[in-house]
Design a binder for these strands. Structure first.
Lengths: 336, 336
DNA sequence: ATTAATTTTGCAACCGGTTGCAAAATTTTC
DNA sequence: GAAAATTTTGCAACCGGTTGCAAAATTAAT
């Protein structure tokens, strides 16, 4: 590099003031007279100065970096999620440091990494990681909130999400209301807490209302292919009229498998999904599904992590948002 | 916070060596005797020490942060793109600092932002931004490579991507080979260089081989809805047998619009897309499309930005990767 | 066993900011 | 206009590392 970035010292010299004065004009709420502020601002403009966040971070022990941990880069909902997160953080002049967990679920490596970068806080955005994962950050003294995490009545950490158990129950009810009596369950990966909870709620409510569950399958990932494959095995032995899929993407895979087998939807077989991702509204699927309020969850989790920066001792809190049914056309019409 | 993070000084004290010794054991290629290294490592382990990247960055003027600029969080291909980028960077122990451009395309704000974070380099991953955008980073002395950018024979900056013009021509040829003689063009947003180039190549080659272009439309974004809408207007006046869509997602929207109008694919109307995103293989679409080697482009652009860190004066380079046709089932079978 | 060559080590300055504190300057009060 | 109260300013230490340089320790050569 030819000319190094211009520093605070140079601005100070040009403006004929001390370094502190320059620093103060660039930090919120510091006291500087209008006169010096003007001088400094001019000098800064002339020199094209902008303060180094690295140096500031070192001095203030705040980086304005938020670790954003995700482990599902296969599911397009996560693009929506990233979009919302980057925007929400941006608005508060924070920045996401993206961590792609791929398959290693050992928290210690991520904790180590994010500690090295001295992130101010961490948002774990995943419904498949065990609660322990996010907990590791708390132990490392890093403010953390688990978005899309499992709801616990006595949380050690902040959780923002939905009541998956209740949503599973909603699915059962919806199927029943549409006149189905024999249904199948096609869940997400069995290791995912979200999948477990949705299943539990679904089964419980089904029992209560006498909805018979003919088949149970678990996809090995929240992914199209997995849904397609799982539906394949489900179809070998068809004793059900509709399927509750634990995720829209899985549902799309399942629908395509069903169509491939010559079934038409919803005449021969019904589907209800989960999430209401953008693609659920696509004409080729037009999925009846349970809408998860992604936007609210994200905004709320950002808000929460920000508040932890201000009040580190804040007691862990659970924030649950209600889901709702979005009726489209993959279940047969309601009986009148 | 109760106990501040453990610092190099504490490790030094516990190990009974100087701070430099500790620093050296943690920096690649520095000279330390086996004896001290052992002592330091033990002390570090006992204390749970890991060096602060912030402090290191300040001292070395290297942050290991790469700005990753994107402006299309609607198109699921970008999730694939993020996945690949985060992994590729991670492997080289670099980290992406994600910038979501939403709609403001004024480079100066991003330049400013990324300069403040002193990113080591920037990757602009977008086929819709003007070449000027990426150029602004060069002027600000920041190593930059434009991935998916417009190919220029005398580049001022590094470009990695495909020859969109040539790919447009491939589309024309493919349609012709499949026996189509009257086709429509449904491009991406007209302001996107990629869309312009694909269009140019398509039109040029069509003229050469006497493929008649009955209709021309441009979607207002690389998005499903835009494709659906554009196809709607295209269908008002149907004088074509097939459509070349400038992007798979647009194509899916267009296909759904066509099906909604009662057409079947490929019997009544043919489609060819662009990108070969994962979803193109979904049964509901099973798109014949032009495959863009995303993986190669990404790996290559990471490699390039890394090499610029090592050799700052490196001359700008264009790297183009070949595209290929992926035949699925949205064009009628080849004549024998 | 000396001396020369090489490696390891610690000192101290530096990276680019922030901030507590006391002095200087300004404003308010009487 | 002088004294008191308030605001602004600069000094200097600090954040947690790195690194050039010379001294100390080790190894190699004679």
């Amino acid at each position: 590099m030819y000319h190094m970035a211009v520093t605070l010292r140079e601005v100070a010299e040009r403006a004929g003031v001390s370094r502190s004065a320059v620093s103060r004009t660039f930090t919120q709420g510091a006291s500087v007279s209008a006169k010096t502020r003007k001088k400094v601002e001019k000098a800064a403009r002339d020199l094209g100065y902008s303060p180094s966040l690295i140096a500031r971070s070192l001095a203030t022990n705040r980086t304005k970096l938020i670790g954003l941990i995700a482990n599902n880069f296969q599911n397009p909902v996560f693009l929506e999620v990233f979009d919302l997160y980057t925007r929400a953080l941006q608005e508060r002049s924070l920045r996401p440091l993206l961590v792609n967990l791929t398959d290693q679920t050992d928290p210690s490596a991520s904790v180590q990494l994010l500690k090295q970068y001295s992130v101010d806080g961490v948002i774990v955005a995943s419904s498949t990681l065990p609660p322990l994962f996010a907990h590791a950050f708390k132990e490392a003294q890093v403010p953390v909130v688990h978005a899309f995490g499992r709801f616990a009545s006595t949380p050690d950490i902040h959780i923002v999400g939905i009541d998956n158990e209740h949503c599973g129950a909603m699915a059962a009810e919806t199927l029943f209301k549409h006149g189905y009596r024999h249904v199948a369950f096609l869940g997400g990966p069995q290791s995912a807490t979200s999948a477990q909870d949705r299943a539990a709620g679904f089964f419980r409510r089904a029992k209560e209302i006498d909805l018979s569950i003919a088949e149970i399958q678990y996809a090995d990932a929240y992914a199209y292919d997995s849904g397609q494959r799982a539906m394949g095995t489900l179809l070998q032995n068809r004793k059900f009229e509709a399927v509750f899929c634990g995720d829209d993407l899985i549902c799309m895979g399942a629908m395509d498998a069903a169509r491939d087998a010559g079934l038409s939807i919803p005449q021969d077989i019904g589907f209800i999904g989960f999430n209401d991702m953008n693609m659920a509204a696509w004409q080729a699927y037009n999925l009846t599904t349970i809408r998860q309020p992604t936007n609210e969850i994200i905004l709320s989790s950002v808000e929460l992590v920000v508040s932890m920066l201000e009040t580190p001792g804040r007691a862990p809190e659970v924030r649950l948002f209600p889901c709702s049914i979005v009726e489209r056309s993959t279940l047969r019409p309601l009986k009148k």
